[in-house]
Amino acid sequence: MEIALRSTNRRNFARTHARETIGCIEAASYLSIPTPWPAALAILYQSFDYWADSEMERCAMSLVVADFDHLVLNVTDVEASARWYEDVLGMRREEFQGGDGPRLALKFGRRKINLRPADASQKDWFTASEARPGSADLCFLTSTSPAEVMTHLRTLGVSIEAGPTKKQGALGTLDSIYCRDPDGSLIEIASYAGHPVVRR
C-alpha cells in the first residue's frame, strides 16, 4: 500500500507540473516569446508522467504471495485440541520454542497449525485482535474417499455436521464432509474426485 501511494504521489506530481509547464508554453506562444526550454521541459514532464504510470503498475504487482506457511488457531485447551487433530485428522505433534516458552504445533504435509491458548496475552503471543476459540473455518484436503472419511469420523464418535456435498475449491469441485473441533471451529475434510493429494 505504501509503495503504491508513493507511486501515485509521483504520478500526481508529474501531471501537475506538466500541466503548469504546458500552460507556460501556451502563454509564451500567445506573446510570441521563443519557448525552446519550456517545450523541452514539457516533453520531459510528460515522459516522467508515462514512467510514473508504468512504475506504479510495476510496484503494485511487485508483491504476490505464492502460498501460506502456517496458521495460528486460538484454542481453549491446547492439549485437548492437539489430541483431536492428531486422532481425527492424523496430524503430527511438534513442540517448538516461542518467546513465552514451549509451544505446540500440528504438522500436516508442508504446513502446520500453531495452537495458541486463547487466554495468552498479546505480549506473550502476538495474534489477531479477536482471539476467540471456535471462530475458525478450515478446509483440509485428503486422499481418503468420502465414504471412508465418514466411517472414520463415526468410529471416533465425531458428529458429522454436513456432507458428503459438492463444494467449490481452489482447484475445482470438492467432495466435502464437515465436522467441528473441540472449540466448535468448522472443519471441512475434502477431496478432489480423481485427483489424489500429493504428499510433499
Score class of each variant (00 low, 15 high):
2 E>C: 01
3 I>S: 11
6 R>F: 13
11 R>H: 15
13 F>Y: 15
15 R>P: 06
16 T>K: 15
18 A>G: 14
20 E>R: 13
22 I>L: 15
23 G>K: 10
24 C>T: 12
24 C>P: 07
24 C>E: 15
25 I>G: 10
26 E>K: 10
26 E>R: 12
28 A>D: 14
28 A>C: 14
29 S>L: 13
30 Y>V: 10
32 S>N: 11
34 P>C: 07
36 P>I: 05
37 W>K: 14
43 I>R: 11
47 S>N: 14
47 S>Y: 15
48 F>C: 13
48 F>D: 15
49 D>Y: 14
55 E>S: 15
58 R>D: 10
59 C>S: 14
59 C>G: 13
60 A>R: 09
61 M>Q: 14
65 V>F: 10
67 D>L: 07
67 D>H: 12
68 F>Q: 05
68 F>L: 01
70 H>A: 01
73 L>D: 00
74 N>T: 08
74 N>D: 07
75 V>E: 01
75 V>K: 01
77 D>K: 02
80 A>G: 06
82 A>K: 08
82 A>D: 03
92 R>T: 03
93 R>V: 13
96 F>W: 06
97 Q>N: 07
98 G>H: 04
98 G>P: 03
98 G>E: 01
99 G>L: 08
105 A>S: 00
107 K>I: 03
110 R>G: 08
112 K>W: 11
113 I>F: 01
113 I>G: 00
119 D>C: 03
122 Q>A: 06
122 Q>T: 01
124 D>H: 07
128 A>L: 02
134 G>E: 08
135 S>T: 11
142 T>S: 10
144 T>I: 14
148 E>Q: 09
148 E>W: 11
151 T>A: 09
152 H>D: 08
152 H>P: 09
153 L>Y: 04
154 R>L: 13
156 L>G: 02
156 L>W: 00
157 G>P: 01
158 V>E: 00
160 I>N: 00
161 E>A: 00
164 P>V: 05
170 A>K: 04
172 G>W: 09
177 I>C: 03
177 I>K: 00
186 L>P: 09
193 A>L: 05
193 A>N: 06
194 G>V: 01
196 P>W: 00
197 V>I: 12
197 V>H: 07
198 V>L: 12
